[in-house]
Simulated scan of single mutants.
Amino acid sequence: MTTPHLVTRDKTRRIMVGRVAVGGGAPLAVQSMTNTDTRDVAATLAQINRLAQAGCHIVRCAAPDMTAALAFGPICAASPLPVIADIHFDGRLAVAAVENGAAGLRINPGNIGDQRAVDRVVDAAKAHGVSIRVGANGGSLPKDLLQKHGGPTPAALVEAVLGHVAMLEARGFEAIKVSLKSSNVLDTIAAYRLFAAQSDRPLHLGVTEAGGLLAGAVKSAVGMGALLLDGLGDTLRVSLTADPAREVEAAWHMLAACGLGRRGVEIISCPTCGRTEIDLFSLLAAAEEALAGVSEPLRVAIMGCVVNGPGEAAHADVGIAGGRGVGVIFAKGRVLKKVAEADLLAEFIKAVAVAQAEYRQNNS
């Protein structure tokens, strides 16, 4: 039996985003961003509540105009999560969002305004005890840096972030975290590594504009997975062109795969082959839907035949192994019962409920 590799996380400074500790050895925080119109308070709060139920720790909302910035008042008052204001171009929006309860700001180097605008933002952040994320994206770097580095290179991203961090530090502001995102996975990895070698500021990980559900999750897993296994990262967001709740789901799968955190059910399922004699695809889809609300970190298996059944999935808390029109329900390698294919899902859910109760009892 191989010994699992344990990730040693890089030690960064600690800041607070509302009540959530970031950096300094705090647990990795999962973030997402609402895609509702922030001015629609009810819709935005409904989505934030869904994200919280999915396991999100911090949420970001756009503040494209003053009406949206003022909407942070009722949103932050009712949100179960700390809310970060996403600010571009207009420092007045940052000040308004902070004054209306935002727990943090996300600003981009070079587009927040002149020095006076930066001063006003920093003064407001200090006065209200909020954090600032300095975010650089490959697609929105200042022209002088693009010319100097010949494009949005990792070095250009790092220089942009270090320059803006220095501006905040010069004003005595320390509650800073940073992100250095590119839609190019290799550039993203290189930028974070380069920055981490020069600074101990906490890092928010992400591959920007990653794409749709499948392609985006793969790109994010490759980019952020490499960094997480390096020990880098204090918060993360999987940026997908999809329901924001799927971002949170993908983030937890990523953390579980890296041995850095588990939430909810981890499903193990075989890829199917010529031995499969049950409708495993439909069974898996139904099981995923039925288990979506389970928060206990259980490992379950959906296996298509006895070859890949209780033996290979013996470590699963609960599992199914299929046969011709029938299947067995097993737990930790021990067969519990044999049932008809039509009853497999219902019996499986019952067995999962038992495992949930046992987990709660053992961890109360």
Rank of each mutant, 00 (worst) to 15 (best):
T235R: 08
G104N: 01
S282K: 11
D279W: 08
H128F: 06
K126Y: 00
A52R: 13
L232K: 11
T2Y: 14
A191R: 13
N100W: 01
L344G: 12
V294Y: 15
L205F: 03
A170Q: 14
G259P: 10
E266I: 14
R275T: 12
F348S: 14
R263S: 10
V207L: 00
A346H: 09
R237C: 10
S239Y: 00
R171M: 01
A196D: 08
P109S: 04
G264F: 13
S131R: 03
F89L: 04
R116V: 11
R39W: 01
G259N: 09
I176E: 02
T235A: 09
G18A: 04
S239F: 00
R275M: 07
A245E: 14
V207F: 00
F89D: 03
Q356G: 01
M167I: 14
P82N: 06
D144S: 15
A175Q: 12
R324L: 11
G101N: 07
R360D: 12
V265P: 12
L81R: 05
S32H: 11
L229F: 00
A69T: 05
V339Q: 13
M1D: 08
V122S: 09
S295C: 11
Q53E: 07
L280F: 00
D119W: 00
C270N: 11
A190W: 08
A124T: 05
N111G: 06
G309N: 08
V7S: 03
G319H: 08
G138Q: 02
L228M: 08
G163W: 09
G150Q: 06
V165W: 13
M66V: 06
S364F: 04
M1I: 14
R14T: 13
L298N: 13
S199P: 07
R106V: 03
A287I: 03
